[in-house]
Design a protein around this nucleic acid. Structure first.
Lengths: 133, 133
DNA sequence: CAAGTGATGTTAGATTTTATGACATTAAGT
DNA sequence: ACTTAATGTCATAAAATCTAACATCACTTG
């Protein structure tokens, strides 16, 4: 699934192709970029290169505009979206490090106990207070 | 899955992008086209436009050449491949039309019998000789 | 209503990309 | 050595894109 995401984020399309795929004019596409709604990359010759994700976003923008939202409103939408995603990511990261910490501490136990899993003879196995900070 | 195939066969990439994706020169890409190994479409301005399938095929061609096969040999490979696929398709088509015929005839039975499935009171349900021509 | 603003159209001039065709080169096979 | 297949290189023309500026059009608002 990583490879697919890579492909979708690879900047391979010139603006002419994007115009056809989105039915937008070059003027519109560049304007939305100027407004910060998309960030196409540039090739060595300074030509804008777009990804499939960019195309998707442009189609979204079109829909939002058709629905009466203006560009500031669309910016708001994306601002909130990326904020939510950032929080989600943060939570996931935190969970990962938490379980990492547990695993690492457990490994340490095993080392101290001579490569054996922690047992009741070592200490109270129900005392997890140290790991719940 | 149809949509995916459509995307893969959509001609959206200019030759510059294909050069980067395949690490081939424009000269090579055009030469392979001249030899009939790929058939990119053209846009209104006569520029070649490539699909992801084209890119895949170009990468294949590269591999074949690296393996010592020459272009005639590669043509052979693809000739045989498409021949096999045509046969397969033909078989599938034949199967499809056969079952289609059965379904259609069964519908006709139902109509004649007054929207009821064919029964033994209508005729011998095991007499399928008519459909096996 | 006149003025301001947001979104888009249009145009000009410069730069980049691609197309075609010709000729050159290089490696391999006979 | 001579051919041939695959590729490189170059010149010239056309197409695509860039930037920047000015124009238009529909709304909104004082």
């Amino acid at each position: 699934m990583r490879e697919k995401e890579l492909r979708r984020s690879m900047s391979v399309l010139p603006i002419g192709t994007v115009m056809k795929l989105t039915d937008l004019t070059a003027r519109q596409i560049r304007y939305y970029e100027q407004q910060g709604l998309i960030k196409p990359s540039r090739n060595e010759g300074n030509r804008r290169m777009y990804s499939l994700n960019d195309v998707d976003r442009l189609l979204e923008i079109k829909d939002y505009l058709d629905e009466g939202l203006n560009i500031s409103g669309i910016k708001e939408v994306y601002r909130k979206q990326s904020q939510l995603e950032a929080e989600k990511k943060k939570r996931q990261e935190k969970n990962l490090t938490d379980s990492d910490v547990r695993r690492i501490l457990q490994d340490e136990f095993m080392n101290i106990a001579g490569l054996k899993p922690p047992s009741s003879t070592f200490n109270n196995p129900n005392d997890y207070t140290k790991f719940n900070s």
